[in-house]
């Protein structure tokens, strides 16, 4: 199932990208380039060949590990992705690490104290998260925590760790025992991670709340209480365990979505991630880059869906794998 989906995605993106009425070679060459250079570029990248030929070159390259040459950066697309993807991945992980636990907790509180003050507060919080422009939130956090308080930095990822193993700065810092960069990297990721987490946190809260409310009404909750179990156990072991099933699957997909590159957050905090790269690639018609990012995203989504399916089966014994 996975392979056809991925192929389908690349086909569609490929077609759209190449159908745009503009000459990519001209754009890549720059305004001042003489016509011979433009033609050279066209030859080199088979732009004069029919679409299916170009597609063939592309797929065969992909499989061999050659994801094309990124024109906006003058280096291979794969190199660019290896730079930018871990940055986005790290940011997304920390954003989710904030969004999920906090979101679930607020959702539970909301559901249990329904229509009382904690519920109203947390619903306002969630609503603001969904409606607040992430751009505005980011700038606001910079203003408060950088300009006025000076607690956190406003841009960048921090000091590069002395050895790069994964591209995830915090992990690499720990692995290379570089504590100066560890401190700097943690400090740099806090504001952007909080900014990025906000919308997902809101969604998690709402989903958990509604899921919990549904579950709390069910008979087996009555049974659990009839057993004399304390409320905490009923809520967390009996209700939440069931309520989490739909919520976590949403979280899995949210994660994949965020990985697509949170352009706005990355722009505000100058985070060198996939979002900015993809945006730049699109505005300069850097086709190989666009294709590379899309392909990567397709793969990520497919994997995320797979993981979500597995999670589902693990959490809910009523669902069996392999169907």
């Amino acid at each position: 199932m996975l392979i056809p989906v991925v192929i389908g995605v690349t086909l569609i993106t490929f077609t759209i990208a190449y159908v745009i009425p503009a000459d990519p070679a001209r754009a890549w060459a720059g305004q001042k380039a003489p016509p011979e250079v433009v033609e050279q570029i066209r030859e080199k990248y088979h732009l004069n060949d029919p679409l299916y030929v170009q597609y063939y070159y592309y797929i065969s390259g992909l499989v061999r590990g050659d994801w094309g040459y990124s024109h906006s950066e003058h280096r291979p697309v794969l190199d660019c992705l290896m730079d930018y993807f871990p940055a986005t991945f790290e940011l997304t992980i920390w954003a989710m690490a904030i969004a999920i636990p906090v979101g679930i907790y607020l959702g539970v509180v909301s559901a249990v104290k329904r229509n009382k003050i904690p519920d109203h507060l947390s619903r306002i919080f969630a609503l603001s998260g969904v409606s607040m422009p992430i751009f505005w939130l980011g700038l606001l956090l910079i203003l408060i925590f950088y300009t006025y308080l000076g607690w956190f930095p406003a841009s960048g990822r921090g000091i590069t760790p002395s050895h790069t193993y994964t591209g995830l700065y915090i992990l690499d810092s720990i692995l290379s025992l570089d504590f100066q960069s560890l401190a700097s990297d943690i400090w740099h990721i806090i504001l952007p991670a909080v900014t990025l987490s906000y919308a997902t946190l809101a969604v998690m809260t709402r989903m958990t709340r509604s899921s919990m409310l549904e579950v709390l009404r069910l008979d087996y909750i009555k049974t659990a209480r009839a057993k004399g179990l304390p409320d905490k156990i009923v809520i967390y072991r009996h209700a939440l365990r069931n309520a989490l099933i739909p919520t976590l699957t949403v979280a899995g997909l949210a994660f994949a979505g965020l990985l697509g590159g949170a352009v706005l957050t990355e722009t505000i905090f100058s985070w060198p991630g996939m979002g900015r790269y993809a945006y730049h690639a699109i505005s300069t018609l850097d086709f190989p880059a666009i294709m590379g990012v899309t392909f990567l995203m397709a793969v990520i989504f497919v994997i995320a869906n797979l993981i979500v399916d597995i999670m589902y089966a693990y959490l809910d014994p009523r669902i069996k794998l392999g169907e």
Binding site: R225, A226, L229
Partner: peptide
Amino acid sequence: RRKIRGKEISMIFQEPMTALNPV
């Protein structure tokens, strides 16, 4: 009351299909 509930006074419900926790 919780000490009594489930220990000295127990209750079973109507819908056996849904009265037990599925997970």
